[in-house]
């Protein structure tokens, strides 16, 4: 576009920059719509805020996760203060420090687990949907079997048998269990895409199957895959936090679920430590909450019928 080349002074003002960004985005209609959908904007802003909080938070605390930051016993209950913005636990740990470190770990778990689950689900869904026939029957049969299994019990059993659990172990474990849902969703998308003209064309040009799957099918469901990933990210986090509450969390390191479990175990709410009982969970909730908004908004963007025009 012409205005990009001319040295329009407006482009250096913040408004001008935004304008340029939007004009660029306009070329990609979907992205433009995404960034103007209020739900998406709200979701992304809130999620970014939580993410930033997790990333920067550790730089604003002088304490370690398990470092004694003051006296926290009920007699001298330390409510949030300037020095300890989120107060102290009964044992004298700084809740802010634990929350930000825990949040970091939990976000990492979500990404790793979400990626694994999305990846497995994507591969199985693509192959099943594209190949059809016996392959489809077999893969979907398998998927359905796993889908009906209650996940948490499987995770409990497996987690209990791991002699040693790190944060990444947990993520991989959960990711390996929660993929079936993705496979099913991707398969049905693939089925509807594979009969489209450009796929047929690609097939006639004797392109290899993996290439068709990646370039012609997966690439065209990118937005869909992204939404699936978000769901799996949330799923991983919820499953891990549940496990952590049951005492099957990482035996090493910290995570938000462990921080919450510790609060529950110590009867934080009963004993009046609302900051300890509520705040860590609140951040987890806000993060998931923002992603629900993001997903609903994206749903509206990518399914034109839903656009509130």
């Amino acid at each position: 576009m012409a205005e990009e080349k001319t040295g329009n002074p407006e482009q250096y003002t913040s408004q001008g920059i935004l304008k340029t960004v939007f004009s660029r985005l306009k070329r990609n209609e979907n992205l433009y719509l995404a960034f103007t959908n209020p739900k998406v904007v709200f979701g992304i802003s809130l999620f970014s805020a939580v993410l930033l909080f997790a990333l920067l938070g550790p730089y604003f605390t002088e304490y370690g996760i398990n470092e004694f930051a003051g006296i926290g016993s009920p007699a001298s209950r330390a409510a949030p203060s300037g020095e300890h913005p989120f107060g102290l636990t009964m044992q004298g740990y700084d809740v802010f420090t634990r929350t930000v470190h825990g949040l970091r770990a939990t976000i990492l778990v979500g990404f790793v687990g979400g990626l694994i689950a999305s990846f497995i689900g994507l591969i199985i869904g693509l192959i099943a949907g594209y190949r059809g026939g016996m392959v489809d029957e077999f893969l979907m049969g398998l998927t359905n079997v796993f889908l009906t299994f209650p996940q948490l019990p499987i995770l409990i059993v497996v987690a209990a048998y791991l002699p040693y659990r790190g944060i990444i172990h947990m993520a991989v474990l959960v990711g390996l269990v929660i993929w079936p849902w993705t496979a099913r969703a991707v398969r049905s998308q693939t089925m509807s895409l594979k009969n489209e003209e450009h796929v047929a064309l690609s097939r006639i040009s004797a392109n290899s199957t993996p290439r068709i799957l990646i370039e012609d099918i997966a690439a065209n469901m990118f937005s869909y895959i992204f939404m699936v990933f978000i769901l799996q990210y949330m799923g991983t986090i919820m499953a891990t936090v549940g496990l952590e509450f049951l005492g099957l969390g990482p035996t090493r390191g910290v995570s938000l679920g462990l921080v919450m479990q510790h609060a529950v175990q110590s009867g934080a709410l009963y004993l009046g430590y609302w900051w300890w009982g509520i705040l860590p969970g609140l951040f987890l909730m806000l993060m998931i909450f923002s992603l629900y908004f993001l997903n609903t908004g994206m749903d509206e963007v990518f399914n034109p019928e839903l656009r509130e025009l």
């Binding site: 919820m238 509450f245 709410l269 009982g277 509520i278 969970g281 987890l284 998931i288 909450f289």
Partner: peptide
């Protein structure tokens, strides 16, 4: 409702216990 589904079951339950029971 988004808030309901965004809370881990156990955390939601703890808050319910705290409010309605305790």
């Amino acid at each position: 409702f988004y808030g309901f589904v965004s809370s881990p079951y156990f955390w939601f339950a703890i808050i319910v216990v705290f409010v309605f029971a305790h």
